[in-house]
């Protein structure tokens, strides 16, 4: 049961990390392999604020959202938007380039050692609940990410912005004709996605570790979430991240020899039989 709970917490973090990508890749059809770099930016923002300036952990979280979101806006305005219509190969090459730059740049600025984040007293340790060992921090993650998930669903499905985004994605030309500021909608979405990734990076720093290689190490996880989850909105990626989180934690616990082998294989199998993901818009 503890494993199940840890897996859920892990999956929740993955979802927050990857949901931005599921919008850019799944909905806007832009292959952004550099998504992990934004997550890393958020993680490092938290680490710097805590370790150098002594901010409390929770207070750094808004900045872990804002910093990558601002970087996201900047890059979207200057670089990304030029490539919305480019081929997938070009997008892949471009974002791989960004990943290489982010990895080496972070190494240069911050050193290659993993960053440690010291959690506050009230978030560390475990307690027993109905015979389950529950980590306080894991519970915190589940709650925060759960709230975020619900909020995201509401924004996407119930607000004016959400319907504009869906319209802009479905048919940019018609949306533009209806007076929807498509470019701005994309920009805001991109920024929010990057910010959420950053938040995920900060929340997950304790679970996933944080070092300059982060964008490369977790790139495949994000891609699995999105490709397996499909493009039906956020439910697919959410379920996919939970499955991935639980499978990964359980796999590492029960059959450590197989390592990440299981999840890669699962991804290939899913892609072969359901090339467009598990949850496809009918």
């Amino acid at each position: 049961m503890t494993i199940l709970f840890d897996g859920i917490a892990y999956g929740m973090v993955l979802f927050v990390l990857a949901c931005g990508l599921s919008v850019t890749l799944g909905l806007m059809n832009f292959v952004n392999l550099a998504h992990g770099a934004f997550a890393m930016a958020g993680g490092y923002a938290t680490a710097i604020l805590m370790n150098r300036w002594g901010w409390p952990f929770v207070a750094t979280l808004p900045l872990a959202f804002l910093v990558p979101a601002l970087i996201g806006v900047l890059l979207e305005r200057t670089l990304y938007r030029r490539l919305y219509d480019a081929s997938h190969l070009d997008q892949v090459l471009f974002t791989i380039g960004l990943v290489f730059m982010a990895v080496a740049g972070t190494d240069y600025l911050m050193g290659s050692r993993p960053q440690l984040i010291r959690l506050p007293e009230w978030l560390s340790g475990r307690f027993e609940f109905l015979g389950m060992q529950i980590g306080r921090y894991r519970l915190f993650i589940v709650v925060v990410c759960g709230v975020l998930t619900v909020a995201l669903q509401l924004v996407l499905n119930r607000t004016r912005f959400g319907s504009r985004l869906r319209a802009a994605v479905d048919d940019p030309r018609v949306a533009r004709g209806l007076g929807i500021p498509v470019e701005r909608v994309f920009m805001i979405t991109f920024a929010a996605g990057s910010g959420l990734a950053g938040l995920g990076g900060a929340l997950g720093a304790e679970l996933l570790g944080l070092d300059p290689l982060f964008p490369l190490k977790f790139m495949i996880y994000f891609l699995i979430v999105v490709t397996v989850g499909g493009t039906t909105g956020l439910t697919g990626p959410f379920v996919a991240s939970l499955i991935l989180g639980i499978a990964d934690v359980a796999g590492k616990y029960f059959v450590p020899d197989l390592g990440a082998f299981i999840i890669y294989t699962v991804m290939i199998v899913v892609l072969v039989f359901r090339p467009r993901g598990l949850f496809v818009r009918s």
Binding site: L83, L93, F94, I96, G97, F100, A102, V103
Partner: peptide, 9 residues
């Protein structure tokens, strides 16, 4: 990485 980005752009 910078070269890749530049080439694509």
């Amino acid at each position: 990485g910078a070269i890749l980005v530049a080439i694509v752009l």
